[in-house]
């Protein structure tokens, strides 16, 4: 039943999406074909799909670590931005660096940047018991403004005709392309590796066990002496590190420089992906594939059918909504009347 809910939610989203297309006067089958088949049309499209799947999976695997312990990190988007700034900024700080060490150093810097941004809410939560949902979300907007400040100011390129963009990163700071004729880069391999590590961590580490107890029964965690503070730190830092890596993948991969927008909402979509994947790294890979299809399919629908890109957001919203509904339906039964009339049946 646990695994039926995501499938039911995906099916319901497609069904209601089709109804929406009919309402808009479109041929639903044609739209669905564009949505779900065009990402697999050719090698190039599959490469594009993997570019979407990688940051989604990275963010979601990290978020799931915290979510399992009821640590609600809503700010992966901001941690992704900080990771992009730290990793990209590192490359900008050493414009002459050409060694093979540069990319790994950028990823380390990006992970640390994401962790630093997640450490703030963790400290506030442990020290002052602030609500991490609010602090992580608010820091997302701070991160966006910080990035704007940097690309409008210190990082603005001389050659950029005044656009708020940095100089392009040097070749050594760029992820290589894996296949000719595509933009496929090793980001997807990083995502797979992180998902594998996440699976090992969740299934076999004592810390993850303690966090799972904390998430399933807070009373049992207190009884066993599993401190809450450690769970908050690990949960938020894992999310921050993974989101930071995703930020570096974007900057060093497809974008190649720092600019005002790095992510089309991967950090937020990853929250849906994490729950759709049942907080399990394997499930998250599948869920990020589905979410990636929405992104790529949505782009294709915009180009070939003239649909607005907001359709991607509509699909994401429906998916989350139906997932929550089917989870509810799995554990509860709807009854239309509270109780039988006491005289009837006498």
């Amino acid at each position: 039943m646990r695994f039926a809910a995501p499938l039911a939610a995906a099916a319901a989203s497609v069904l209601f999406g089709s109804a929406l297309f009919v309402f808009l006067g479109l041929e639903p089958l044609a739209v669905l074909r564009t949505f779900f088949l065009s990402p697999f049309r050719d090698l190039y499209s599959i490469g594009e799909l993997s570019l979407k799947v990688a940051p989604l999976a990275l963010c979601a695997v990290g978020l799931a670590v915290g979510f399992r312990a009821n640590v609600w990190n809503i700010g992966a988007e901001g941690q992704l931005v900080l990771g992009a700034m730290a990793g990209g900024g590192f490359a900008l700080a050493f414009p002459d660096a050409q060694g093979a060490w540069l990319l790994p150093a950028m990823f380390v810097a990006g992970a640390l940047g994401g962790m630093a941004w997640a450490a703030l809410p963790a400290f506030l939560k442990v020290r002052f018991n602030t609500n991490e949902i609010l602090t992580t979300l608010m820091l997302t907007y701070v991160a966006g403004l910080l990035l704007s400040y940097m690309v409008y100011g210190p990082w603005r390129a001389e050659s950029g005709y005044g656009w708020p963009e940095s100089e392009p990163l040097q070749a050594a700071a760029r992820l290589p392309r894996l296949l000719d004729g595509t933009r496929l880069n090793p980001g997807i391999l990083l995502a797979l590796a992180v998902a594998g590590a996440g699976w090992l961590f969740v299934a076999r580490s004592f810390i993850a066990y303690r966090m799972e107890v904390g998430g399933m029964a807070a009373g049992a965690a207190r009884y066993a002496g599993f401190g809450r503070g450690g769970m908050v730190w690990v949960g938020l830092l894992a999310g921050g590190a993974c989101a930071g890596l995703a930020g570096v993948v974007e900057v060093a991969g497809t974008i190649g420089k720092l600019r005002e927008t790095i992510s089309p909402g991967y950090g937020f979509a990853a929250i849906i992906v994490a729950f759709l994947g049942r907080l399990h790294p394997g499930g998250i890979l599948l869920a990020s594939l589905l979410m990636g299809i929405f992104y790529v399919g949505g782009e294709a629908a915009k180009v070939s059918l003239g649909l607005p890109t907001a359709i991607i957001g509509v699909f994401q919203g429906m998916l989350l909504f139906f997932l929550l509904m089917s989870d509810l339906a799995v554990s509860w039964r709807l009854r239309w009347r509270a109780r039988r009339d006491p005289v009837a049946g006498a």
């Binding site: 004592f206 066990y209 799972e212 107890v213 399933m216 029964a217 009373g219 049992a220 207190r222 009884y223 066993a224």
Partner: peptide, 20 residues
């Protein structure tokens, strides 16, 4: 339930709770 044992975990994983 909920303190001495985690309801949704197996007995093996519940053994780990304090015998770790």
């Amino acid at each position: 339930l909920g303190r001495a044992a985690v309801p949704g975990m197996s007995l093996a994983r519940n053994a780990l709770l304090t015998a770790c």
